[in-house]
Design a protein around this nucleic acid. Structure first.
Ligand SMILES: Nc1nc2c(ncn2[C@H]2C[C@H](O)[C@@H](COP(=O)(O)OP(=O)(O)OP(=O)(O)O)O2)c(=O)[nH]1
Ligand SMILES: [Mg+2]
Ligand SMILES: [Mg+2]
Length: 589
DNA sequence: GCCGTTTTCGGCCCGACTGTTTTCAGTCG
């Protein structure tokens, strides 16, 4: 998925500086309007590329502009785009976008967002039939007007009506990575049951472990391609077939999730897997490199004239360019090609490196003590230590414990630790940091009693800036771990705003661990912020934040993002054999 | 709109599927 933007109205009048995703949305809308107008497709592409670049920045572009940073140092941002970004940051508006919105009906963007309807036909519908909205499009089809247009026919009408119907039902949008995990495994299993399967894998953003995915992209290596496609179409959860040829197919599942399949012969497995894993920018860059050398790269292989240079394996493809194999998590055009050429890719942290989980709940959703169950699950996972953290009485956090629950929890922790078997449990409490920097409740007495202090920034108003408060709270020296440090939410806007540079510097200076929270909706720190924190020398801690023992697997999602942030085992506190906190482990907590 | 020791102008990845087409444009990955 990707390309055309699902049109979303940008929240207007948001207090504070403009966010990167708002800037990106403006460029995407502009690109869509230009495309409909028939502008140079490469110019359109340039705006989409700019949107991606801005969205992927670890810092607010507004702050970068304010500090006079030269944005043209980003490949794909030239003088013009840098100027437009500056204008957006300073005025909140993009004049070219305003001008185009005044000239073109906004409803055209809704038309463009229909799968199968691109800029050329949206333009035709508008120019020839005056269609400006989905409703008008439906009416025109019902009146039999569409099939009179060149390139339109009865089938086109049908497909458009179906697309409109689908759009009115929920389920078409992006999903959390964790949400599609089960489906992805089921499809992989299904593809594996085809007798002719030599290789099968889910590629795309799922394989890159991106925090959210637009669809599932599958690859198969077989000798009998047509048979493989037929087998794919028998997946029990298939609801619709969008297209099905002899080398590829696209289906929709019962829940609206799109699944793409690409089928090739085994000698092309490596190059097809690489192509379908992406990212698009990474794939395009490889193809540019091939051209520079006078070669050609497509899904079938890397070729010098007729001669095949690579194809069967991914490693062979990268090796042909003089590169190490690049882990999928790094294929985002964030410096991985240069690093792979220099043979200086990081040795990414793995599951086997993880010795401890930063925090899980000791009190279940029903108020019962689940310390032993959490410990047993961690034991089965081979962990050496486990933080037990619940929201403190007086923290004002949702689900804050009563005093008696805290003492029952403490007894359970002490009981487990007396057994002196793995994992060692670390009693911890979650405290709240308010925008003024006050920590609730006062952590000092708790710290003295051996409790690990986990603190969470909590805004009192939407979009509030927490930077000063968090800096102040960290400076007290009373905090061990900063949980959900940036307040970001996957696929949603952040709970508060914070300057990541100052946050990370404060954490580093005071030896506070920055958490990567594994809750699928949070994944906070994000990949790019984790990378930034590592560069700055801050300590990073993965936490499943599991509210039940089953959810301890969430630490895997935190690890995914750590890997996307180029982190090695040595960069993670979790890889140490002994608990990393200086506080006494009396079990009193 | 961006970019460049081949280039400051003229390129910009490359292929599959669909529907309407009489040879291909549009859309998508
Ligand atoms: N060569 C080439 N490859 C593309 C293009 N668009 C997509 N791909 C490749 C790279 C992508 O990772 C892969 C799957 O495409 P998707 O649109 O599903 O993107 P991706 O999975 O990366 O992100 P998503 O979460 O689905 O939006 O196909 C393209 O325009 N050209
Ligand atoms: Mg796809
Ligand atoms: Mg995808």
């Amino acid at each position: 998925m990707g390309g055309k933007a699902p049109h979303r109205k940008v929240a207007a009048g948001t207090p504070g500086e403009i966010t990167n995703s708002e800037v990106a949305a403006m460029f995407r809308t502009l690109a869509d309007l230009l495309a409909i107008e028939g502008a140079n497709p490469f110019r359109v592409e340039a705006y989409r590329r700019a949107a991606r670049i801005v969205e992927g920045l670890p810092r607010p572009v507004a702050a970068m502009v304010a500090e006079g940073e030269d944005l043209t140092r980003f490949y794909g941002i030239g003088k013009d785009l840098a100027g437009k970004i500056r204008t957006i940051v300073e005025t909140g508006r993009l004049p070219l976008l305003d001008e185009m919105l005044a000239r073109m009906p906004e409803g055209l963007l809704d038309l463009l967002s229909l799968p199968g309807l691109g800029p050329a036909r949206v333009r035709l519908l508008h120019e020839q039939l005056g269609i400006e909205t989905l409703r008008e499009l439906e009416d025109a089809i019902r009146a039999g007007k569409l099939r009179r247009l060149p390139g339109f026919g009865p089938k086109t009408e049908e497909k458009i009506l179906a697309a409109i119907a689908r759009m009115r039902h929920p389920g078409g949008g992006r999903r959390l990575l964790a949400e599609v995990e089960e489906t992805a495994r089921a499809i992989e299993t299904h593809l594996g049951t085809f007798p002719g399967t030599i290789h099968a894998a889910v590629a795309g953003s799922f394989r890159r472990r991106k925090e959210s995915v637009g669809d599932l992209d599958c690859v198969m290596a077989v000798e009998d391609g047509a048979g493989a496609i037929r087998h794919f179409l028998t997946f029990p959860r298939r609801a619709e077939t969008v297209s099905a040829g002899i080398t590829r197919a696209t289906i929709l599942l019962d829940d609206g999730l799109q699944v793409d399949l690409r089928v090739v012969a085994p000698e092309s497995w490596g190059t097809t897997l690489a192509y379908f894993t992406g990212s698009r920018a990474h794939t395009l860059a490889l193809r540019h490199l091939a051209r520079e050398k006078g070669w050609k790269l497509n899904e079938y292989g890397l070729f010098a004239g007729e001669r095949r240079l690579a194809g069967p394996t991914e490693a062979g493809l990268y090796a042909a360019f003089g590169m190490e194999w690049i882990p999928p998590e790094l294929r985002e055009m964030r410096g991985e090609l240069a690093a792979a050429s220099a043979h200086r890719l990081p040795e990414l942290a793995t599951r086997a490196d993880i010795r401890g989980d930063g925090r899980v709940r000791g009190i279940g959703p029903d108020g019962r003590v689940i310390v032993a169950r959490q410990a047993e699950a961690a034991r089965r996972a081979g962990l050496a230590w486990l933080g037990i953290a619940d929201p403190m009485p007086g923290s004002g956090l949702r689900g804050a414990l009563a005093e008696d629950a805290l003492s029952r929890r403490a007894e359970a922790i002490a009981r487990w630790n007396r057994k002196a078997i793995a994992p060692r449990l670390l009693p911890a409490g979650i405290f709240a940091i308010d925008p003024s920097g006050r920590i609730r409740p006062d952590p000092a007495p708790w710290r003295a009693r051996g409790l690990v202090i986990v603190a969470r920034p909590r805004a009192t108003a939407l979009h509030e800036d927490m930077t000063d408060g968090v800096e102040k709270a960290i400076a007290t020296g009373l905090i061990d771990i900063l949980a959900t440090p940036t307040g970001r939410r996957v696929l949603e806007s952040a709970e508060f705003s914070i300057d990541p540079v100052r946050l990370i510097e404060a954490a580093r200076a005071n030896d506070v661990c920055l958490e990567i929270c594994g809750i699928p909706q949070r994944l906070d720190l994000s990949d790019v912020h984790a990378r930034m924190a590592r560069k700055a020398g801050a300590r990073i801690l993965l936490a499943s934040a599991a509210t039940t023992p089953e959810r301890q697997i969430q630490i895997g999602y935190a690890l995914d993002q750590a890997r996307r942030g180029w982190l090695e085992a040595k960069d993670l506190v979790n890889t140490r054999d002994t608990p990393p906190f200086s506080v006494a482990i009396s079990g009193e907590g």
